[in-house]
Design a protein around this nucleic acid. Structure first.
Length: 551
RNA sequence: GGGCGGGUAGCUCAGCUGGAUAGAGUGUUGGCCUCCGAAGCCAAAGGCCGCGGGUUCGAAUCCCGCCUCGCCCA
């Protein structure tokens, strides 16, 4: 807000400079106004002079001094200007400008930081999408938390978000699940059974089989695999759902891959691609001419066995997303799905749809560290750690926080030793503690009969400490942070912001007493603290974390 | 062999469209509770930003080559 006000003033000067013939318009939209890395370089800084100089072959410091002359009259807003380094113009704003940031925070409270850049546009976030063959692994956990947080961010900036879970309960995987369950069922009954070679070895299959025995006894001993498949599927879905609920994740819609076949949508894709001459038969299989669309090689879409490859339903599914009216589609996948992405996008493009409306977030893998050593996991042998187990150890807040601490592109090392520490070094508590402390200040104030005052009546000129202005500036940056994190689909930035704000606040708290004998100073500091508390609560809630009032 | 993602402090990682002197947590060392919550604070040490070239006023950031780790395809 403050930044955009300043940017407007700089833009005006830039236009004026063009009219005066100081420079050309070549630099329009290319220069920026930023917060510099070091405080002594000002509240803000612009590279306008260097960009203009580069385009027009002028001396940057001369351009800078023209700009400074034009801005110098703005005495109400700008306290001081300087030309520095290779030609930066640094801005030092009036203190009272910074004091205006508290008003919108306290006025809007929970709404502070929300925006309407989405303008109600419909966006779908598809995530988790794990087939019901077993409990969620920690990889799914990262996917789930990333997807949900991105959805929350988009909601915060005004998009109409649908969370969708896509699954397939028909394929070979599911038959193997049914066979595995039946084998365990018979085994538990002491009957002869043959466990499938590539069966699911996890103990959860025993649990499901036990439940079936408890319900139906031996009556299913001659039942078809399908019976076991359906039972196992339902049980596993319940399980997944429960796990997700524990981290505060729910879905708006579930989409079954099978319905694509039932409704003939898969065949339709083949037909449409064929009519565009993008499909041919070779060696009994049906091929998609992806080479025509710029890919390395053509791809099989229907195997010689008549079974489609994953590409075909994926293309049909994405076409359905378009047909259902979504203007922006976000897919959250693990890195192992990388191969499918270009083919699906090529298919979408071939069908005449705008593939730039699809954004794919590929997150890298999670490794687990316990006692300083990497925990070995194998999906086949079911020796992987589940989200549920992790939740039991660390709880939902720590899980969310740790999974959001890294950007999606980075591999994530989950340090259980750090995560399970209930105190001290754990960054989750560091941030939450800041909020709890602020709540404690409020409780203290109430006990001392100190009433909260609105910024207009709180003698804000008593805010004089450098720490207080740093805090004001950080608070002021919150709305832009949210908007940026949402548009770049980067929830980790919220986490880093909160850790920074917590550090600043703890430091301030230790150095300066908020509630003191000085009535005016108390009013001003208390006002600042209430604003900071609001930002903590909003920021934590924004990514699904709790803001505890005490710990 | 090809594609994608990494390589930044001892360790785990930020660094948004190129900007000024490279950032955090953790670890190490030393200090701070008579005082709004010590789950906290302060201070110190710690860096050829994988390597080599290029682009330019300016590169951790962009381009090319190479090394290396992870994932995927063959």
């Amino acid at each position: 807000m403050i930044k955009s006000q300043l940017k407007k003033r700089v833009d005006t000067c830039f236009q004026l400079g063009i009219r005066e013939g100081f420079w050309s318009e070549a630099a329009a939209e290319r220069y920026t106004v930023e917060v510099p890395k070091h405080e002594e370089q000002g509240d803000f800084s612009t590279n306008l002079a260097m960009v203009v100089a580069g385009m027009d072959k002028k001396n940057p410091r001369e351009v800078a001094s023209r700009l400074v002359d034009m801005l110098a009259s703005d005495k109400d807003f700008i306290d001081r200007l300087e030309i520095a380094g290779p030609g930066f113009v640094n801005f030092f704003l009036k203190d009272e400008v910074w004091r205006t940031v508290l008003d919108p925070v306290l006025e809007n409270e929970a709404q502070f930081g929300l925006a309407d850049i989405g303008a109600g546009k419909r966006v779908m976030v598809e995530f988790v999408s794990a087939n019901p063959t077993g409990p969620l692994s920690i990889g799914h956990g990262r996917n789930a938390i990333l997807g949900d947080s991105i959805a929350r961010l988009l909601e915060a900036v005004g998009y109409d978000v649908t969370r969708e879970y896509y699954f397939n309960d028909a394929g070979r995987q599911m038959r193997v699940l049914g066979a595995s369950t039946r084998a365990r069922y018979l085994e538990l009954l002491g009957k002869e059974s043959e466990f499938p070679e590539d069966g699911y070895q996890g103990d959860y299959i025993y649990d499901i089989a036990r439940a079936m025995i408890a319900e139906s006894g031996e009556s299913l001993k001659d039942a078809d695999v399908m019976v076991f498949k359906d039972y196992a599927k339902a049980a596993i879905f319940r399980d997944i759902d429960n796990t997700l609920k524990k981290i505060g994740i729910t879905f708006d819609t579930y989409y079954n891959e099978h319905s694509l076949y039932e409704e003939g949508l898969v065949d339709e894709v083949v037909r449409d691609l064929r009519s565009k001459d993008l499909v041919y038969e070779k060696e009994g299989a049906t091929w998609f001419k992806t080479t025509v669309l710029g890919q390395e090689q053509d791809r099989v879409i229907i195997k010689s066995s008549g079974e489609p490859t994953y590409r075909l339903p994926d293309i049909a599914y994405h076409r359905e997303k378009f047909r259902r009216g979504y203007e922006w589609m976000i897919d959250i996948f693990g890195a192992d799905h990388i191969a499918t992405v270009p083919d699906v996008l090529a298919g979408v493009r071939a069908l005449g749809l705008d593939e730039t409306k699809i954004d794919v977030i590929l997150h890298q893998f999670v490794t687990l560290l316990r006692d300083g050593k990497q925990v070995k996991m194998s999906t086949r042998k079911a020796t992987f750690i589940t989200v549920d187990e992790l939740l039991d150890e660390v709880g939902p807040d720590v899980l969310r926080f740790f999974f959001l601490m890294r950007k999606a592109d980075s591999q994530l090392e989950f340090d259980l030793d750090l995560a399970t520490r209930q105190s001290q070094e754990n960054p989750v508590y560091y941030v939450q503690y800041a909020h709890a402390r602020l709540c404690s200040i409020e409780r203290q104030a109430a006990e001392k009969n100190i009433a909260p005052k609105p910024p207009g009546k709180a003698s804000l000129e008593y805010l004089v400490e450098p720490e207080e202005y740093r805090l004001l500036k950080t608070v002021a940056g919150y709305p832009a942070l949210v908007a940026g994190a949402a548009q770049d689909l980067a929830p980790h930035r919220i986490i880093f912001y909160l850790m920074d704000l917590a550090g600043q606040f703890h430091s301030y708290y230790n150095k300066h007493k908020v509630l003191s004998d000085d009535e005016n100073m108390t009013a001003a500091r208390y006002c600042l603290c209430r604003a900071i508390k609001i930002v903590f609560r909003n920021g934590l809630n924004l990514v699904g974390l709790r803001a505890p009032e005490s710990m």
